[in-house]
Design a binder for these strands. Structure first.
Lengths: 180, 180
DNA sequence: CTCAATTTTCAGAAATTTCTGAAACTTCAT
DNA sequence: ATGAAGTTTCAGAAATTTCTGAAAATTGAG
């Protein structure tokens, strides 16, 4: 590994824990991401000096996150891994996966808590707060689902609009008002 | 704690680690969030059966995340904590804080890596990949900054539009084309 | 300033998570 | 079928993170 690659890989290792993946997994991804060709498990283990089994675990997790994909070369039985190229696709995958892991469970807990029949002052207040939270999350995820369905080009355009989002909103608002 | 509150608190404890805060911190926040009145550290320690010092640490972290705020009652020297009520405000704070912790460091690492003068095939490819990543993140955060500046009401409206985002986009597109 | 109430710090204990090496398993060419 | 190449599993070792109790620091009333 060159110093440039080493710095990148080690940064991903450090950030890994903040992103909910562990250090090893972060480094493996980083290495695959910058590699000019797909890598197999042994090459990864050697480059990062991890045990072969640790790499196996890490790759399994990256596959679960759908951040790497498998490739095969004819005449070689080993599995090779590469990181998908379309950056927006990666972004979308990440967002989707995080939503599934970090938001969905809470949403279902809230739903069932809100169905409970309670009577104490305290519980009624708690339910009101939970209802606020539920509404917010629901609204956010609905919007997110929608944005997620956009193709990379459109998404990129939406982002590119940046500073004009609120102007656009004002405009849409006036437009609607004129119609009524 | 009633069973309803207990369930909510314990869920936040379990999710805490997925959200980059620890179990204790998650539970403390949950308790404050549903509480009908501000709580002091001793009340929290008693309700959750944590050591007093653990609660102190947890509250400090929640303050760093700007998820709780301090209140004082006259004639009582203790500090009381409550969770801000405006859900969108909370959402915005959370997003901002996560951006600062999870994205900003990577962005600055990428910037400095891209300034390095390299010549090997391998490093040139790595830099190209890093450039992709940098562009994407930059674009995303610029957009996010912008959205973040919107007040709660506008943000809520934007989200509420949901399925119409892309229609709006098409519209803006045509509008622009007409002008040129 | 003094002192009691309260909060914070911190070293080490406890718990959790990550990592390893050895063994088990799978796959496929012969 | 056999066995060589490759992958996965898993029990326990290593590392990291969290939690505690005791002690230190801070705060504000008198």
């Amino acid at each position: 590994m060159t110093p440039l690659v080493r710095a990148f890989v080690s940064h991903f290792g450090e950030m890994g824990s903040r992103w909910g993946i562990n250090r090893t997994v972060g480094q493996i991804y980083a290495l695959i991401y910058v590699s000019p060709r797909p890598l197999n498990a042994d090459e990864i283990a050697e480059a990062l000096e991890f045990s072969r089994s640790n790499v196996s675990m890490g790759l399994k997790e990256l596959q679960a996150w759908r951040l790497v994909c498998l490739r095969h070369f004819s005449g070689d039985r080993r599995e090779y891994f590469e990181a998908p190229g379309d950056a927006w696709e990666v972004f979308r995958t990440l967002a989707e996966e995080r939503r599934r892991r970090e938001i969905e469970p809470t949403l279902s807990m809230l739903r069932s808590s809100l169905l409970e029949d309670v009577s104490s002052e305290e519980d009624l207040h708690a339910q009101a707060r939970m209802r606020d939270m539920h509404t917010l999350i629901e609204q956010f995820t609905t919007w997110f689902d929608d944005v997620q369905r956009l193709d990379s080009a459109t998404l990129s355009k939406l982002m590119g609009m940046g500073a004009t989002v609120h102007k656009l909103l004002d405009f849409a608002d006036k437009f609607k008002r004129n119609k009524n």
